[in-house]
Design a protein around this nucleic acid. Structure first.
Length: 201
DNA sequence: CGCGTTTGACCGGCGC
DNA sequence: GCGCCGGTCAAACGCG
């Protein structure tokens, strides 16, 4: 990972690159998000429409040959979508209403912080997420989702049951399904759900 | 006892 | 071909 202020060259081609510094004064923020790979499910011959939308894009985050190879692999595995974002958080396992099972933990090179691997436990859903603490900004947590859920989260299905309320509007309401109800946690959860919706549409 | 986590082993890809 | 590295597996472990 290179989040350095002048890190316009991305030395680790397969790493995630967030173009801006986080604001150290913010209580929390999901400062950047990147859709690293999205929706490329064609066969291996199409390689152009690769490096996809990045809302906060100013530089970097380009598709590299490594990304292409990775994408091929992911396509074979049915994992076409990858989204990463960084948020300021004391805890690493932020509740996003999905149920995850931890299946691995690895220390990664050039980072003092371990990386945690999670799988969605819902049957047939092979979405994965990686969580690691930012090497340079230790109060920030980097979450990478890979794949698209083949089911709704308990929260969004709850929202969809409300006839007069659009899901996005529902998300701004406190979740009735979660016992942890601090506004801080709720705020993060809302952002995660919004990004999950962006990803799945 | 069941379920989720931990952790070392293992595997495949990639660069040299 | 070899070693490094990231990702995954699975047995052991711990907790409710």
């Amino acid at each position: 990972m290179d989040f350095s202020p002048n890190g316009h060259s991305n030395p680790k081609p397969n790493s995630i690159f967030f173009p801006e510094n986080p604001d150290p004064m913010a209580d929390f923020e999901i400062s950047d998000y990147l859709i690293l790979d999205a929706g490329v499910f064609e066969d291996d011959t199409s390689e152009k429409g690769m490096g996809v939308a990045n809302e906060s894009e100013t530089s970097g985050a380009s598709a590299t040959p490594e990304h292409s190879n990775m994408q091929k692999k992911k396509n074979k595995l049915g994992l076409g979508h990858r989204i990463a974002f960084r948020m300021k958080s004391e805890i690493e396992a932020v509740d996003d209403e999905y149920k995850w099972r931890k299946y691995g933990k690895k220390s990664v090179k050039n980072s003092p912080n371990p990386r945690n691997y999670y799988k969605c436990v819902s049957g047939g859903c092979n979405v994965k997420k990686r969580i690691e603490r930012d090497r340079d900004y230790k109060s920030y947590v980097i979450t990478t989702y890979e794949g698209v859920h083949n089911h709704e989260s308990p929260y969004t299905s709850y929202c969809n049951q409300m006839p007069l309320m659009a899901p996005n509007a529902c998300i701004s309401q406190p979740s009735p399904l979660s016992s942890s109800s601090s506004s801080w946690n709720q705020n993060i959860k809302n952002k995660l759900l919004i990004y999950t919706l962006i990803l799945s549409h």
